[in-house]
Amino acid sequence: MEDYGSGFEAEPGLDEGSIVARAQDGDLRAFEHLVNSYQGRLFRLAYRMLNDRGDAEDVVQEALTASWRGLARLQDVQAFGGWVYRLATNRCLDVLRKRSTRTEHITDPQDILSISTDGAGSDQLSDPAYAAERTARDDGLTAVLNTLPPEQRACWLLREMHGRSYAEIGATLKISPTAVRGRLARARIQIAEGMNEWR
């Protein structure tokens, strides 16, 4: 138990609101704690949005750096999580917008399947160890997911993979919580049908 010395292990059970407040005052260890707590989640979101490790890491870095710079302006400490998710989501959408001006947009599930089995559409399948650990079901779901339009995919990921609220997702995508609900329902049925074809 003498091992902590510095860091938040010295204050176990500190609530996230208090940690955010300290980071707002420029407490680096508090901010580091937030980085530890969010970098993995944001990376998983960005990776599923972008299918590229490097791009996903850039998004995590940019979003958390931006959160540091904007912390002082955050009014409600409880809103930190939703806010960094929003920063990351919007950066992912920016990256995809830039990509779509460079490459053709793929919308047909059959297209993405043939591309990802070539290993060109995503880097995960090029890694044999990675692919072996993944079940065909996971691959089917992610392949179909990649055929959804970016905002719909973001909507689905934020809700189904990250458990964010309708209100928060709506604020991120600048639509009403009701519209989030509708978009999710549409995404679900589309993915479900796509998975049928994959099978």
């Binding site: 003498e2 091992d3 902590y4 010395g5 510095s6 010295a10």
Partner: peptide, 9 residues
């Protein structure tokens, strides 16, 4: 101003 770094165990 910080607690000292933990002694290496």
């Amino acid at each position: 101003i910080e607690p000292p770094p933990p002694a290496k165990i």
